[in-house]
Write a protein that binds this DNA or RNA. Sequence first.
DNA 1: GGACTTACTTTTGGTGCGAAACAATTGCTG
DNA 2: CAGCAATTGTTTCGCACCAAAAGTAAGTCC
Lengths: 386, 386
Amino acid sequence: MTAGIASWLPLSTGERSVAIEVLVHGPLSRTELARRLGLSAGSLTRLTKPLIESGLLVEVAEAGVSAEARQGRPSTPLDVVADSRYFLGFKVTEDMVYAVVTTLRSHIVARHDRPLTTHDPAEVADVLGEMTAALARDHPRLAGIGIGIGGFVQDRAVVGESPFLLWRDVPLAELVERRTGLPVVVENDVAALVESETWFGAGRGLDRFVVLTIGAGVGYGLVLGGKRVPFAEEDRGFGRHWIVDPNGPLTPEGRRGSAVSLLTIPSIRYQIHAATGRDHTYEEILALAAAGDPMPARVVDEAARALGALLAQISNFVMPQKILLAGEGVGLMDVAGKTVEETVRDNRHPLAAPLDLETKVSDFHDWARGAAVLAIQVLVLGSAEG
Amino acid sequence: MTAGIASWLPLSTGERSVAIEVLVHGPLSRTELARRLGLSAGSLTRLTKPLIESGLLVEVAEAGVSAEARQGRPSTPLDVVADSRYFLGFKVTEDMVYAVVTTLRSHIVARHDRPLTTHDPAEVADVLGEMTAALARDHPRLAGIGIGIGGFVQDRAVVGESPFLLWRDVPLAELVERRTGLPVVVENDVAALVESETWFGAGRGLDRFVVLTIGAGVGYGLVLGGKRVPFAEEDRGFGRHWIVDPNGPLTPEGRRGSAVSLLTIPSIRYQIHAATGRDHTYEEILALAAAGDPMPARVVDEAARALGALLAQISNFVMPQKILLAGEGVGLMDVAGKTVEETVRDNRHPLAAPLDLETKVSDFHDWARGAAVLAIQVLVLGSAEG
DNA sequence: GGACTTACTTTTGGTGCGAAACAATTGCTG
DNA sequence: CAGCAATTGTTTCGCACCAAAAGTAAGTCC
């Protein structure tokens, strides 16, 4: 496999901002770029010329249907060559490794999953290496690898602590780099998803943006000034100490009335099991609640109120322009979205700017895609520091 | 009275950043400035020269005791001429107007208060004009006026809505400008205090900073990237809809268990009155609680827990580097600070960065000083937009 | 008093930008 | 179809700003 270059040719700050703007916001004419970046038309000629010569940007023919036939010289949009390079994203779970290959625009072009039968660091790295080799056959121009993992990651390279893999201070980036010859970034999975949504998803171009994930746990990501704010307790059980309702339920995972006890899938299943003695999947519980079964309805209602209170508090304090609700547990919104919205409204000032809430079901490939975005960022920005 | 110039001589962005750095962080040598601003030594010679020539900065002799007798050529710190210009800050309440004169560094050099016997906009402006004239006699070089007012203010000029003055859309800045000939900035009082603390106080140089005020109401200010985030519900009863404890007390001011019902001085006094039938001042209630009187102790304890929960939630979501607790109701911390801290700890992750909480008792002159800082900002930045 | 250290100044050259004139390419009008 | 208006993109020029390097100033240390 060919070793990808570590980063784009050294770009000046002006060139880089042009490149990122085109990468993130699709084909844009020079004039449009000048407007967006606050530069003069002349500067854009200067900045785009080397980018086009290096093959990073291309002039694309205005789509056949020239939409609005405006007067004047037609603009020639510029675009990145999205499939000039490919990126590999891994999501590592307790028993599976999910992989995706994406374009420079983070569009998924291939998927590949494999069960994980060992937790030995070297053997896990072997698995990742083999999967990379397999995927590289069909996608030769791989430029980098991103790995998302549930746990605490240091310097985007070392897994400091992973509860489900039972790892401590495993230099995963180095292990995989040695096996693949490609630059590797490792990051906490929630952080990766947040970066991904900030660059290419719901948080594109926003100044204040929050991501809240519900699934096996609760995850939180804060983006201010377009940059993610890192924090120490990240994915070390965030939300376990976060008390929403002091009289709420107690579960093995979180403290009484905590976000974890009220909202995560295991906790909701635990509550139903403790009350009825029967085991149900999360989807079954939601269906039973929708059908009016009293016990599931109560648990789901309580979860919805907790989520509403949580969202209201985030809105009140952070005042984000948008909150993205993601993860495997957002099915709650389909069944009890109305309760969530009511609770939010009830906990906010009537004059407050309305909450822009986006819900997104994410499967494991979305998490892997988030990791791939990290590799894209490294290539574009030239360093592993976000 | 002499009309102050509207702003400093047109400064380049580099010059302005030097001026602000010296203004906010005290006397600094050129080398130190170069380090802080990330510029070369040569650039600092270039940038400081015109500032010194224009009289805005001066070289100050290293204080007699040259502290640490370091090797090498001694540095010559630069400082602003703090009393080259004075600024006027007003805080307008229902029945009083508080005024302070400050230096460029926002040090208070004079105070002057007058009762307010009318709420007629023109007559209030007259009062402010007369107070300005009186203060201008002793402090001729007034450069600008800042007015802080409880209520909703638009464009830093028009009082859109003030519940206690019963004003709607009063162009206060214009009224006072016409009477004084000085540039006037009007702003919501909490916003003014936040700006003041961001420039000269607890929030100096911080990236993420929160101000929470407790007094007649609850105020909230969010500073991100060194800039205050404006919000629509600002001082239109913030905290009234903000439910801390669903089973908390109900007061005439706020909703059941809201921050207002639990924390504000009127609400605490109301609770005691409703329970015991007796009227006590806030200070008396705190003293009674400290002495162990059960009913006041319960109310104060509940307030402390609410404050702790509130601070924890802010910490968890905004992750500020510091929270400043200000206002007339911070006496609560003296009596029940331990309970507040315990509650904060109880609602946060053990690995989370410890909360940096600063408490500051503010009287009305502090609020007026906050308003004066707005006038300073306008002079230095050259516009009313923060 | 000479060596050394640190602070500041001067000089030089490069970079990045905007302004303005110019070229290109279309639609519209008569 | 010629001419004009509108719009995009290019070229040229000059300015503002900055870093690097070399030089100067002013002190301490031995």
